[in-house]
Design a protein around this nucleic acid. Structure first.
Lengths: 159, 159
DNA sequence: GGTGAAACTTCTAATAA
DNA sequence: TTATTAGAAGTTTCACC
């Protein structure tokens, strides 16, 4: 995967858009002392380059009644079953993230649920997938850090 | 945390905006056979209710040279150190997520890095935090599932 | 609640520098 | 690459259902 070169202006534009996707280009232009047209052209280029994949809303799932987060480590009987198990995981509602991993677990996933009862149902469905030998659940008591914006800063402040 | 009641229209609006935050309200209105003003008012209400917290860009960090993802389980010497350790974690660049958890680990975090060398530096910084007894790293070989959009569907298709 | 239209703001593409 | 500009498009408000 090729590394794409962004300059300071691109960085600032991304910074403002990461904070709020709907920031008007005119506002960005004013702040960076460039024209709105330039902002438009640069954003378009970053989209074409595939740097900007898309945009999404951040919702408060707790307010929708979904306050429960757990990470579930999955042990497989055999790694050849990985692809199959991922497919099955993908079909289980409320499994929002899954990674194939090295280390302790073969697959590692994130579950969002209403409460412990609801989470139990989801985790049991994971346990029941053919090829899963056992799972280990880590319940989140608090999401203490979750900061996309800072990652951008970290990337740009690297030497 | 109170549960907020969203109707089918709100749901559809969120669905379209989760897919692309910049979807014009006029497009949404056309599709849902309501007026753009209504879309505007409903979005504003969801923002005021705190359901919509904000919006953010989705970037391809691999294209920026950051292809490495790892999850790090942190064991503490004593849970009373949790708050302190979280603060320290927050000061380490490229630690993008951290949860306080029950189960195996006391704290669980996600690291985004350039490569294994870079990741090593970050993980060593985590190991060095006072109060951390040891860590366990799970390297992501593949992010197989990561779907916010589906979560919304799951929530709305619940009985 | 919702609508439709007016007033206002922003976007976008073409042209020019 | 960037700036300007002007027409197109989108947003937001408001009087009225």
């Amino acid at each position: 995967m090729a590394k794409f070169k962004l300059d300071e202006i691109d960085h600032q534009i991304l910074d403002m858009l990461i904070e709020n996707t709907r920031t008007p280009f005119t506002d960005i232009a004013k702040k960076l002392l460039i024209s709105a047209g330039t902002v438009h052209v640069r954003v378009k280029k970053m989209e074409e380059a595939g740097i900007i994949i898309g945009s999404s809303l951040t919702l408060d799932y707790r307010k929708l009644g979904y306050s429960f987060i757990a990470y579930v480590g999955v042990y497989l009987q055999n790694t050849s079953q990985t692809k199959f198990v991922i497919e099955r995981l993908n079909a289980i509602p409320f499994v929002t993230v899954a990674h194939i991993t090295t280390g302790k677990f073969n697959i590692f996933c994130k579950v969002r649920a209403k409460d412990t009862q609801h989470a139990k149902e989801i985790i049991f469905r994971i346990d029941d997938i053919e090829g899963v030998s056992r799972t280990e659940t880590m319940i989140s008591l608090e999401e203490s850090i979750n900061d996309k914006k800072r990652l951008m800063h970290d990337i740009f402040n690297q030497l």
